[in-house]
């Protein structure tokens, strides 16, 4: 992971499974009161709810909203990234960033809620990353904060960084990489994330477990 992004996981310093002896069962004692461990007895929905509560708590631990939350079901992994003010212009995601999450069988993103769009500020060529070798600024499923870079627009050989005006979760990257775009064209669709995240209120609205899964690391 990028060193300039704070990462935590749900067990507050107790990484699940990864560092343990293969095949060793989870040790209940090691679970802090804030943490959630998978439990065969727990229905999937309850696990997810518990994970969400953890995420909400974690995301409220700093003044800035997280720039990115990644969850993995099964051997639960939760990653929360906060934007580093000094690194706002640098690409955020690490290699192996999640590809488009399968959403087909998931509840419609932002069900009933209007999507926000990052739009092209002018005619130009839209790029997903800062350079051909760099990873894309954002991927589907990422949560972006207002002001966070989400792409680059080239017009007359001038590169300008495109930032999200509002925060939200990326549900679709509409404009392909390296393609010409027109003024005001929709580039990235964002669904609103619960503004009360971190206030200890209801869990963040998340998709069904299947959709939450990112690639295993």
């Amino acid at each position: 992971m990028k060193p300039d992004h704070e990462q935590r996981n749900s067990s507050d310093g107790n990484p699940p499974a990864d560092g343990q002896v293969p095949g060793a069962p989870p040790v209940p004692d090691a679970v802090t009161r804030d943490a959630v461990m998978p439990d065969a007895a727990m229905p999937a929905g309850a696990v997810l709810d518990a994970v969400c509560r953890s995420v909400v708590r974690l995301s409220g631990t700093t003044a800035h909203p997280p720039s990115r939350i990644r969850m993995q079901d099964g051997q639960i992994t939760v990653e929360v990234e906060w934007p580093d003010p000094a690194a706002l212009s640098r690409p955020a995601p690490a290699a192996g960033a999640p590809v488009a999450a399968p959403e087909s069988d998931a509840a419609p993103a932002g069900d009933g809620e209007a999507l926000d769009y990052v739009r092209a500020p002018m005619v130009g060529t839209f790029y997903h990353a800062s350079s051909p070798d760099a990873p894309p600024y954002v991927c589907v499923g990422d949560v972006v904060a207002p002001g966070q870079p989400v792409g680059v627009l080239e017009a007359m050989k001038l590169m300008s960084t495109i930032t999200a005006e509002v925060g939200g979760r990326v549900t679709e990257v509409l404009a392909p990489n390296g393609q010409p775009v027109e003024f005001d064209q929709q580039l990235i669709a964002l669904e609103p994330v619960d503004a009360e995240a971190g206030a200890g209120a209801d869990p963040v609205a998340v998709r069904e477990p299947a959709a939450v899964s990112g690639p295993s690391r």
């Binding site: 002018m122 005619v123 130009g124 017009a155 007359m156 001038l158 027109e182 003024f183 005001d184």
Partner: peptide
């Protein structure tokens, strides 16, 4: 047809980079 800018001419019909890009 290419959408090049906002209604005020400065953002569209007088916007040289936008016209050139188009």
């Amino acid at each position: 047809a290419v959408h090049i800018g906002a209604p005020p001419a400065k953002g569209s019909y007088l916007n040289v980079p936008a016209v050139i890009e188009a």
